[in-house]
Write a protein that binds this DNA or RNA. Structure first.
Length: 434
RNA sequence: UCCGGAGUAGCUCAAUGGCAGAGCAAUCGGCUGUUAACCGAUGGGUUGCAGGUUCGAGCCCUGCCUCCGGAGCCA
């Protein structure tokens, strides 16, 4: 019997029809003359019902013996679940076992430890929570592209191999490049500055790499970053762009991933508040907040750790923009505030609920002499930045941009404890496999 | 790299220095509407590795390994 193959999330359109569902065995419950066999196909889960009285003994026995995670094809009639309105099931007539597991499936339906799950990440991805996270991530990636493409930005891909560091080599992975040393990129920003002069509004989106030996819930060795860079935009414009961007992403997730938010048990009322304008405070105001909220030792010149970021972000119900940090804390390429040259025209966006910095950016130094001086102050090799300095030699222009970390954004929107669940196959200190 | 915690059955965890156990998973049986189904039975162990103390070590001591949490740095 040949029947149309339908995906489980479309079963509601086939009530009363005979169809074939293909997928993997989730749970199997039996009660003598009935088998309830759950099939999962990536779009959803459906319960197929095998009633002994209406089937040949061979088919009934086969259905009752399907091991966990065997792949199957079940044919039957789509019907309303008698106990759960709005839920559909399959009154099964036939079942084929397509792929028989060679042994016991490692992930049983009870709780597991982190190490075990990460070792079995390739199988863990099949679970409903991980499925939901993958879908939210894909939606966020799509929202990122739609946001910039819809605002006339041009996607300009930055290289992965880079010849030298833009912020020191200690955090870079090095590799052999035909006898020379090359590094895996930790940012496409410098290339986006070149691109901004070519296309006006540029962005890149790809993996970046950090060799820092960080072991926290916010760090990965390989993560995805989107970096817009806009010609003739100042810090104010940069903050507005970041604000519109984050609001757009969150709104997209809320409108198109309701079901996944439910599976993840995410309190979406907190996300619904993420609309502009975001509060904007200066670095100095942030220090004052810390001093008044359990960190009396905080002083100008300190950078913020995870705890401090949480204290600051908890004062607000939406992302907060902290701008104008001391220049000493920031990378060489930031432009100094003309009103106080000790400050950088930079900004960080801290996500609510303790998710920390998800955006960092600002206005770039566009004066050749000042940029050269900054490179010297940071003890960086000036000759390595020849092409970058050319951007200031030939029609220098004010410009600004930022970088957004996709994994931290996914962790925040999904309400996850750790970024390792936000990327399909995490690369961390002590984790290169699977 | 530093500080703290943990390694016992396939998984999650118990076990006063004195017989190494439970739940889940697996296997077998029972049950006509189950929802991480339920009920009964069976099999399952180099207690992370190496050494030491002791009549006796999963437990105490030393070293090492691995993982988890945090710090620094960052998105």
């Amino acid at each position: 019997m040949s029947l149309p193959h339908v995906w489980i999330n479309t079963l509601k359109d086939h009530v009363g029809a005979e169809v074939e569902v293909r997928g993997w065995r989730n749970h199997l419950r039996s009660s003598g003359k009935l088998h309830f066999l759950e099939v999962r196909d990536g779009t959803g889960v459906v319960q197929s019902v095998f009633f002994k009285g209406g089937l040949s003994p061979e088919i009934f026995e086969r259905a009752g013996g399907v091991p966990q995670e065997a792949s199957v094809a079940v044919r039957g009639t789509v019907s309303q679940n008698p106990k759960q309105p709005g839920v559909f099931e399959l009154q099964a007539k036939e079942i084929d076992v397509i792929g028989v597991p060679v042994g016991e499936y490692p992930i049983s339906p009870k709780e597991h430890g982190v190490e075990f799950l990460m070792d079995n990440r390739h199988l863990w991805l099949r679970s409903s929570r991980q499925n939901a996270i993958l879908k939210v991530r894909a939606t966020i990636v799509r929202a990122v592209r739609d946001f910039f493409d819809g605002r006339d930005f041009t996607l300009v891909d930055a290289p992965i191999f880079t010849p030298n560091a833009c912020e020191g080599t200690s955090t870079l992975f090095s590799t052999d490049y035909h006898g020379d040393k090359a590094y895996l990129t930790q940012s496409g920003q410098l290339y986006m500055e070149a691109a901004a002069a070519a296309v006006g509004k540029a962005y890149c989106f790809g993996p970046t790499f950090r060799a820092e030996k960080s072991k926290t819930r916010r760090h990965l060795a390989e993560f995805w970053m989107v970096e817009p860079e806009v010609a003739f935009m100042d810090l104010e414009g940069d903050m507005k762009l970041a604000e519109d961007f984050l609001s757009f992403i969150v709104a997209r997730v809320l409108e198109s991933r309701k079901e996944e938010m439910k599976i993840l048990e995410r309190d979406t009322t907190k996300l619904e508040k993420v609309v502009g304008p975001f509060p904007r405070i200066t670095y100095h105001e942030a220090i004052e907040i810390l001093q008044q909220n359990g960190h009396p030792e905080a002083k100008v010149g300190d950078d913020f750790g995870g705890d401090e970021e949480t204290v600051i972000s908890n004062k607000f119900d939406r992302p907060v923009i902290v701008h104008r940090y001391p220049m000493d804390l920031k990378a060489f390429y930031f432009k100094r505030d003309p009103n106080d040259p000790s400050l950088a025209l930079n900004m960080d966006v801290l996500a609510p609920e303790g998710y920390g910095e998800i955006i960092g950016g600002g206005q770039r130094e566009d004066d050749l002499a000042k940029l050269e001086a900054a490179i010297d102050v940071h003890k960086l090799p000036r000759e390595a930045f020849g092409w970058y300095l050319d951007l200031r030699r030939y029609g220098s222009f004010p410009h600004a941009g930022f970088g957004l970390g996709i994994e931290r954004t996914v962790a925040w929107t999904c309400g996850l404890h750790h970024v390792r669940e936000t990327i399909p196959f995490a690369r961390m200190l002590n984790r290169l496999s699977p």
